[in-house]
């Protein structure tokens, strides 16, 4: 019995040596590792295997952990740009793109770090205000304290939103070649639209084996959950 146990442990340790790169990465993911680079590499591997839907799913997973992952962002844009539903995505103007990119640049850790630094600066400004000579005009320290408090609250709010999104990402990707979006969660319901592989959808509700999703052009309909790859599983 002891020998059998030792053999099994040895086999488990040696298994990765005989596995392909993909299997190694997949095994790591299955063991519960949450790493943006791991998901990114899995995305690239799936793209090379011809699974554009799964590739998009993994790029989104990488971005869910690190929204500033430039490789995952570039590859996501590349793959969705080649998908059949690429025209469904809204085209943003320069300023909105800049804003969204800035928000992406501020990943969870950056936001946490900036928030604590801003809190420290706010504490310093507050101390400056508290110890400021009462005989003098207090407008400047009050202004500085007010501004730092406002900025701190904005970043704290952004951190909260990002953290909530990180824990409850409601995005999903179409991983099969195509699927019908139905009016109701039934196979014989009326078809609203057709979505294709690699299309990014927002899950609004889940019911049994169906998910109520919103397509990039704003259409809502029910899709069978088995056809979707969820970012948060």
């Amino acid at each position: 019995m002891k020998k059998l146990c030792l053999f099994l442990i040895a086999a488990m340790l040696l298994m990765p040596l005989f596995s392909s790169e993909y299997e190694k990465l997949k095994a790591m993911e299955d063991s519960g590792v949450q790493n943006a680079d791991l998901f990114y590499n899995l995305g690239v591997t799936h793209w090379q295997l011809g699974d554009s839907g799964l590739a998009v799913q993994y790029f989104l997973k990488a971005l869910n952990i690190d929204s500033a992952h430039s490789g995952a962002r570039a590859n996501l844009n590349y793959v969705t740009g080649l998908s059949e539903d690429r025209e469904l995505y809204p085209k943003h103007g320069f300023l909105l793109r800049l804003t969204l990119q800035s928000y992406d640049f501020l990943n969870l850790d950056r936001l946490a770090l900036i928030s604590i630094i801003l809190f420290f600066i706010f504490a310093l400004s507050l101390s400056w205000l508290l110890f400021y000579d009462e005989e003098k005009e207090r407008a400047l320290p009050e202004l500085i304290t007010g501004i730092t408090l406002l900025i701190f609250l904005i970043f704290a709010g952004l951190s909260g939103v990002k953290y909530y999104r990180f824990k409850n990402n409601n995005k999903a990707v179409m991983i099969e070649e195509r699927a019908d979006m139905m009016m109701e969660p039934r196979v014989d319901s009326r078809r609203i639209a057709v979505v294709h592989e690699a299309c990014i959808l927002v899950v609004e509700k889940q019911q049994d084996d169906w998910a109520l999703v919103r397509s990039p052009d704003g259409k809502s309909g029910w899709v069978q959950s088995s056809l979707l790859g969820f970012v948060s599983e």
Partner: peptide, 19 residues
Amino acid sequence: ATIRPMLSRESYPSFRPLF
């Protein structure tokens, strides 16, 4: 655009947010 290649990483530490 082209697909960006895989990243070579020796290890993949699990992500733990600062929070």
